[in-house]
Design a protein around this nucleic acid. Structure first.
Length: 501
RNA sequence: UCCCCGAUAGCUCAACGGUAGAGCGGCCGGCUGUUAACCGGUAGGUUGUAGGUUCGAAUCCUACUCGGGGAGCCA
């Protein structure tokens, strides 16, 4: 018995192999059954024709429940028309584990149901493609820093006191004392880069922000490189090279997955150096100026027109579906189309409701404030390559960011906005390396200097210019795969109000 | 914390003040090339919870719970 994986079937045409997997879907008629098998490496249709050889298990085969686990033996045959390009003519079948009433059917399901069944949901094709890209993204993140002379430093998940602000932290009872789940490893990698030069940490990070949006998780993965002797431009150069490397690798290894997901690959191919570099002031001018207004007005009119079109088609299809003398398959098709149209209608209505608000937010943008989510989307959509936004007002940024020498109201920080409206995927800065300025900032923020003694030591014993950034894995993956929602980018999403399964 | 939307069969939805339905999934039967297969039959409901209005409520009103999206905050 030769065990094969579906991805390797092209080496085995004409040979008898055994596949081990799960039943993805089944169709049967009286004397032939089609079993679509899934083995984690791909899908393959296995054909069970009723004959003397298959007689002992034919009845079993045509009654198998979706997701039954199976060992299927058969002869590999090339068939261009089939998924994966191959088919198996079955000669033997072993049921490893039965599956009765599998909850996720090949029909449409609502998101709440799918999230409750997340432990099964990622057996589905779309989720499988996404999580495969995630695995490569994570590998490339590690690979990039390992290749380029960075030392991995694991930072603690239990953190004393706040890194930036206690309101966004989860509290844990640590032998009777409150400690927090880390929302960043940054302060620790700063210490480490003074020992190793170039370092990075990579792991889960936790934010207790009460955000219910498509961009937020309470538990997400972040990689944070930190570089000694780097100034802001040094940090930006690394971020640019790093992003290019990630995009190249994903395009190289996952073109088929991206195509399945419907990603506009040409847009990813444009991700080349140099990225745009603008200042916070430039961004403010764009938001308050005519380009942002034009973009949103155009949005408003195209989406209004589209909504009318969608509504019209819904009415037409509803009438047709209720009409007499149409075939069952035509009715099914109409119902499926109606389902999609209604979903699009819902999305458009929400967008149209939000656009005027977003226009106002942009037009009245406070040049002394942080960019909001909708502002980032606007800047992002006005650029066809990733865009660095630098030099934010000091007050809206963390205490550890380096004060700008020319304009002390600003700091040497950078956010990277992904194109296509995906917004912020990187936040970073040059760090404040001057002890006195850092102390001043700690006081300004109302923080207790005693909590930061060890951090202040880094400025007492051989301080150097240094900086780094954090990249959010899930937001990056959502952008790479062209997903509407971040919850599909992590195997078991943790969101406000959801921590099952 | 605030704003908008929603909750009907296992799932996706319909019924829009007057007898709770369909498709899928399940079960039974039919069909040798299906692609979300198809055809026939069958089981499946305290309409999220608690009040209220009404002769009559899935439908109208109030509160709550849960979910979706957005603001703030952020990767």
């Amino acid at each position: 018995m030769t065990i094969s994986h579906i991805k390797d079937l092209h080496h085995n045409v004409g040979k008898t192999v055994t596949l081990q997997g799960w039943l993805y879907n089944r169709r049967d008629s009286g004397k032939i059954a089609f079993l679509v098998l899934r083995d984690g490496t791909g899908l393959c249709q296995c054909v069970v024709a009723k004959n003397e050889q298959t007689e002992p298990f034919f009845e079993t085969a045509r009654r198998l429940g979706q997701e039954s686990s199976l060992r299927v033996t058969g002869v590999v045959r090339a068939n261009e028309k089939q998924i994966g390009g191959h088919e198996l003519d079955v000669t033997g079948l072993e049921v490893v584990g039965e599956s009765v009433d599998y909850p996720i059917t090949p029909k449409p399901h609502g998101i709440e149901f799918l999230m409750k069944n997340r432990h099964l949901h990622f057996r589905s094709r779309r989720q499988w493609h996404i999580l495969r890209v995630r695995a490569t993204l994570v590998d490339e993140i590690r690979g990039y820093f390992n290749r380029n002379g960075y030392t991995l430093i694991d930072t603690p998940i239990f953190a004393p006191a706040a890194g930036e602000g206690a309101q966004t932290l989860f509290t844990v009872d640590y032998f009777g004392e409150p400690v927090y789940l880390a929302q960043t490893g940054q302060l620790y990698v700063e210490a480490a880069c003074m020992a190793f030069g170039k370092v990075y940490c990579f792991g889960p990070t936790f934010r207790a922000e009460k955000s219910k949006t498509r961009r937020h998780l309470t538990e997400f993965w972040m990689v944070e490189p930190e570089i000694a002797y780097a100034d802001l431009n040094g940090v930006i150069d690394v971020a640019e090279d790093f992003i290019c490397s990630i995009v190249r690798r994903v395009l190289r290894d996952h073109r088929a997955d991206l195509e399945f997901l419907g990603r506009d690959i040409a847009s990813l191919e444009k991700v080349q150096k140099p990225f745009y570099r603008i200042t916070h002031k430039d961004a403010a001018d764009i938001l308050r100026g005519p380009r942002a207004k034009e973009l949103l007005e155009k949005d408003l009119s195209t989406k209004t027109a589209r909504l009318e079109e969608v509504k019209k088609r819904i009415v037409e299809k509803e009438a047709k579906e209720k009409g007499q003398g149409i075939k069952q398959w035509e009715r099914d098709k109409l119902i499926a189309e109606l389902h999609e149209l209604r979903e699009e209608q819902g999305d458009l209505e929400v967008d149209l409701q939000n656009i005027p608000h977003h226009m106002q937010l942009a037009a009245n943008f406070d040049p002394g404030g942080d960019l909001g989510g909708s502002d980032e989307t606007i800047i992002s959509r006005l650029h066809d390559r990733p865009t660095f936004v630098t030099h934010y007002p000091r007050e809206c940024k963390a205490f550890y960011m380096k004060r700008n020498a020319q304009d002390p109201t600003r700091c040497n920080n950078v956010d990277l906005l992904a194109p296509d409206g995906y917004g912020e995927i990187i936040g970073g800065s040059q760090r404040e390396d001057d002890l006195d300025v850092l102390l001043e900032r700690i006081h300004e923020e109302g923080l207790n200097p005693a909590d930061y003694e060890w951090y202040l030591d880094l400025r007492r014993y051989g301080t150097v210019p240094h900086g780094g950034f954090g990249l959010g894995v899930e937001r990056t993956l959502a952008w790479l795969c062209g997903l509407k929602h971040i919850r599909e980018t992590i195997p078991f999403p943790r969101m406000m109000g959801r921590f099952y399964p």
